[in-house]
Write a protein that binds this DNA or RNA. Structure first.
Lengths: 193, 193
DNA sequence: TAGTTTTGTTCATCTAAATCACAAAATTTA
DNA sequence: TAAATTTTGTGATTTAGATGAACAAAACTA
């Protein structure tokens, strides 16, 4: 039972090996190439995506057509348009592959059924939604209270793997600044380090 | 059955008069004066607050001691530190009364029990959490993609009662700008209108 | 291996909003 | 009702970050 996903479940809940076998039966494994979209704006998000390998981003598109990264994900992360997934109505996030990926798809109806047989799975996803909410609130807070440089340092500290692997443009977009600004910030940090 | 709360429930779910009587039995009515806090930073949020009269704000405090308004609420709004309420662990929001209030307190343990007897209440609050999440995401998106003036106009359009009743400082803080900037924005809007 | 696309860096200029400082209203409190 | 306090409005100045225009370095791709 050496599985990234099994360990992921057991970080925030308790899933037995038997239960995990049940979950595995509904999972769909998909290999997706760079630049491909797992989800388009306006789609209903029918799966939660668990990243086994690679890197992805979710983003929104504003009226001027500019993209804004909402989430970055690498191995051991979940990604989805949560609000669309929960309500099963069209959402406004798109999900694109940054680095060739291996993802596990957990379909919405299957998950609903599993909740009945595996109560701790409900706990797990309730906590996951919970963390997503708290994280969103923290991002809004820091976008209002600290500078772009501080936000970048914070991200580096909390997700060092992300900041070293994901192209600067996406990190800049996640932080709500331009690529040029982030480039200057990096320069500034190195100059004083 | 002329009740603001009853109507509020029936906007997003379906609650019968009988069910509402059950809910009413666990509600605690409280009259709170301006400047008083319903919740302090670090408290566990033990209630969902429904506003029957008055105005409130929830806010976070950053390292420099500056307050940032997270939510504004007037009659017919729910307010709480949702993440603290759901997990029943200490949160980082404070809730303060802006205008003398009449609020209804819905205690966490009582709500958990009511979920068993009134399934549509679960639906109602699931949708409420859902809207809170989507709203938070929209705020982050617009704080990154549109100007403070546009955000203000948007707020005025969607919540005209809030923008006319709540003091400018709190609206500015909600929008993530200073009071001076919002004052200038208002001047600018009036000058061209 | 050459050519093309993607990614990162730098510079000069511009702008939205912050900051500081103070005056005028408006509200509270005494 | 006067005094005190809070809230709002203006002006001058500063600043963080955007914009636009190059260009270099990687990274693909043919």
């Amino acid at each position: 039972m050496a599985s990234l996903l099994f360990d992921n479940f057991n970080k925030y809940s308790f899933i037995t090996a038997d239960e995990f076998v049940q979950i595995e039966q509904v999972l769909i494994k998909r290999f997706v190439k760079k630049k491909k979209n797992l989800l388009h704006e306006g789609d209903i998000c029918r799966y939660l995506y668990f990243v086994e390998k690679g890197a992805l981003r979710s983003y929104t598109i504003d009226k001027q057509g500019n993209e804004h990264v909402m989430q970055l994900a690498i191995e051991d992360y979940w990604i989805a348009d949560l609000s669309s997934f929960i309500t099963q109505t069209p959402g406004n996030l798109a999900i694109e592959v940054i680095e060739d990926c291996e993802v596990l798809l957990l379909p919405h109806p299957a998950l609903e059924q599993l909740y009945d047989t595996i109560p701790s799975l409900g706990t797990f996803f309730r906590k996951l939604y919970q963390r997503a909410y708290v994280h969103l609130q923290a991002r809004l807070h820091s976008s209002q209270s600290i500078s772009a440089e501080e936000r970048y340092l914070e991200l580096m500290k909390q997700h060092p793997k992300i900041s070293s692997r994901i192209p600067l443009i996406y990190i800049a977009s996640y932080l709500g600044i331009t690529a040029e600004s982030l480039s200057r910030i990096r320069k500034h940090i190195h100059s004083k380090a």
